[in-house]
Amino acid sequence: MSISSDYYPLSQHLNMLVEKGVTQTTLTFKEIEDVLKRDLPPTARKNPTWWSNSRTEKYRQCASWLDYGWEKKKVDLKGEKIEFQYISK
């Protein structure tokens, strides 16, 4: 994940959680937006595949958690929250 990536602050946040011993977390979309200091794109609220564990260019935002050893476990679009699980780097 490049430091210049729009999603790098999420990478840093998840890395900080691991340093504190946290291996599972549920974040609201609002909390993620607060970390990013910007709104998520509309697709993130409408399409669960936006949150996939994919390393393709189409889903490059996924690198912000995959590159730091996290995987998306569950996404709740209606409740606007996502569950991440730390696997390993």
Rank of each mutant, 00 (worst) to 15 (best):
P41R: 03
K30F: 04
K72T: 15
P9N: 14
E57N: 10
N53T: 13
P9Y: 11
K72D: 01
K89S: 14
K73L: 08
L10E: 10
K46T: 02
N15F: 06
K73D: 13
S54C: 14
T28Y: 00
F29E: 05
W50L: 01
G69C: 06
P48K: 12
P41L: 05
Q61N: 12
K20P: 03
I82E: 06
R38T: 14
D39M: 03
E80M: 03
F84M: 04
V18F: 07
E19C: 10
I82S: 07
K78C: 04
Q12V: 15
D6I: 11
S54M: 09
Y59I: 01
K78E: 15
I32K: 05
G69L: 07
K30I: 05
E57M: 06
Q24G: 03
L36P: 10
P42H: 00
D6A: 12
D76A: 11
L77M: 09
I32W: 07
R55K: 13
V22H: 03
D67Y: 13
A44P: 01
R38P: 04
S52G: 08
Y86G: 00
F29N: 03
L77R: 09
K74Q: 14
F84W: 06
T56E: 08
S5R: 09
S88P: 00
V22Y: 06
T28W: 00
G21A: 05
W51A: 07
I87Y: 02
R45Y: 13
W51S: 09
L77K: 09
I32M: 10
V18M: 08
E33A: 10
P9F: 11
I82Y: 05
P41A: 03
H13P: 02
N47G: 00
K58Q: 10
K78V: 14
L14C: 08
I32S: 07
K78N: 14
P41D: 04
L36F: 11
L66F: 06
S52K: 08
E80W: 01
M1A: 15
K89M: 06
D76K: 13
G79S: 13
E83Q: 12
S64I: 12
L40G: 08
I82T: 12
I82P: 05
D39I: 00
S88Y: 02
Q24D: 01
D39N: 11
Q61K: 05
K37N: 15
E19N: 15
D34W: 10
P42M: 01
Q24H: 03
D39S: 12
G79F: 04
K46P: 00
Q85A: 08
V22C: 06
L36I: 10
P9K: 13
L77T: 12
V22T: 15
L14D: 04
I32D: 08
G69F: 02
H13Y: 15
I3T: 13
T25D: 04
S52E: 01
S52D: 08
S11F: 13
L36A: 08
R38F: 06
W51D: 09
K20T: 05
M1N: 13
P41Y: 02
L77E: 11
K20W: 07
S2Q: 10
G79W: 02
Y68P: 02
S11D: 09
I87F: 01
S2T: 11
N53G: 15
A44W: 01
T43F: 00
W70L: 07
K78F: 11
K58C: 00
L17A: 02
H13R: 14
I32T: 03
